[in-house]
Design a protein around this nucleic acid. Structure first.
Lengths: 185, 185
DNA sequence: CCGCATTATTATCTTTTGTTAATAATTCAG
DNA sequence: CTGAATTATTAACAAAAGATAATAATGCGG
């Protein structure tokens, strides 16, 4: 997964990690907690979400294997956070403390690169999501997601996908219907 | 701006920086170029944008004083990028090479912290933007932006603001009108 | 400071979304 | 395997956005 790491670097990383499995709907990181952790997704799909002011869950990101996940408010202090992460398929994760990886990064340049890379990759992923949201119609976003992550559509609930696309399940149903009736557009 | 830095750390940082001024509409970083740079915004407002498949500019972010900006594709290689940055007000920037700051970060823990902080801050900013885009209506996003960055509305063109909000200038005009007629909602 | 070019507003029309509610399909636990 | 609970689809209506075009208001260079 990370070819620029030597075996000894991987050992150092694994030393601060804990392997954990989660089933569908199990909580990985809970909003409101404060033990600054992050994880590398080895398999499965996770969703990061928050509860909006009307009490409605909103999926802010979907993260699959090879992605790092963390509650971003943990980045700066120990304050409780508003985001949560949960498995939407059976997941395997390597969980570690942010403090541990930062200590390692200061000592080991390869881990420094790994950590920086994880942060940069998150930025690029998240910018790509903004691009979709400001430039594409919901229908185009649906097609893009279908293209990028077809595995999602075999397993995740439509309501989660709709939520991620920023539309209602009702509107999502209509899009699917429109595309069935009019496949070419 | 960064109280956790000592004077000597700031000196080290300034040593790799170049001070530059930009007028309204001047290009800061050009899509398609490949000299991996970043900058700290000291004053003014910048917009990062890309040209979509129909040839239309899309503002992916607005960055103000205290923010770091960079073309994110530079993070990983020297490939030309699709994003550009331009000043939408007179701007003062500290421009530096990404390679230089990473070298410094490996040697100086305070610069390490500065660099990590800049990346993390970007993630949080950008996640906040996604939150708005999936959870709020265009009208609510307008109010949020008005609240967060009132200075934008005195200087930037409405078309840039509309573009940033992910709507057309026509729709933006209608929102302003609706709110004038119905201030309470 | 003038005039041209850019930007903003308004109107009209079409398309899409949100909301609510009713019904159908499906999951999943026991 | 069965039934209750969750999820998905469809319908009907209201509200909002997109597109296009015409007009008004601004910005800005010479």
């Amino acid at each position: 997964m990370f070819p620029f790491l030597r075996a000894s670097d991987i050992d150092e990383f694994l030393y601060i990690c804990q392997f954990k499995s989660f089933k569908n709907k199990e909580t990985i990181f809970q909003a409101g907690s404060s033990s600054r952790k992050a994880a590398l997704v080895l398999s499965g799909v996770t969703r990061g979400y928050f509860i909006n002011k009307n009490g409605v869950e909103k999926n802010i990101m979907l993260r699959v294997e090879g992605n790092f996940i963390s509650l971003p408010e943990w980045f700066f202090d120990n304050s409780p956070t508003k985001y949560s992460f949960e498995a939407i398929l059976t997941c395997e994760l390597l969980v570690f403390n942010l403090a541990d990886i930062e200590d390692l990064a200061k000592k080991n340049p390869a881990i420094f690169d790994l950590y920086i890379r994880a942060l940069k990759e998150t930025i690029i992923k998240v910018l790509g999501r903004i691009e979709s949201l400001i430039d594409l119609t919901p229908e185009e976003r649906y097609k893009e997601l279908l293209d990028k992550h077809p595995q999602l559509f075999q397993s995740a609930f439509n309501k989660h996908i709709a939520n991620f696309l920023g539309i209602t399940p009702v509107s999502f149903s209509r899009i699917i219907k429109r595309m069935k009736e009019n496949p070419q557009r």
